[in-house]
Amino acid sequence: MMIATGLWRTHILIGLVLLNMAIGLVFISATTTPAYAITAEEMLANPVLEERARNLSKQLRCLVCQNQSIDDSDADLARDLRREVRSQIAAGTSDGAIIDQLRAKYGDYVLLNPPLDQATLFLWLSPLGFILLGGLIVMMARRQRGAAIATELDAAERARIEKMLASRDSENRPKT
């Protein structure tokens, strides 16, 4: 009976903790709206062009913060680059041409998705290399285990066991 009430108490405690966490999560998701760096006056009036601008901005690195896109970043340079992208789009420049222009000024580093070339070859191919390496390790491990199980007793081991069994039999034999 004592054990049963103890268990009950633990269950209620865990339940309360989980309930608290759930309430907290609901509260957090209800009170925080996703933060956008982009302001209303920056946006293009044409929704199709604005969509293109947003899409381009997400592919371009903010060079000050380095791990954010210019779409996410609040840095001054990010705002200037967003403005540059939008003025180019408004002037009728294609997406590819805008990317190429920025690459000509800031290098490949401005792209969040690095192109495949000599400098990034290792970066792009290393996942493949790791998968091959992992496969090799698994294969080696399996072969070893398989070999260990399949091994038959050789003649010397068999003889030793026979001898041990024989000596045990002679020891256990009731004395006469």
Partner: peptide
């Protein structure tokens, strides 16, 4: 004044 020349040169700060 507007930082456009900075962008032309690839200035990031």
């Amino acid at each position: 004044a507007d930082g456009r020349t900075g962008i032309e040169w690839g200035v990031y700060g």
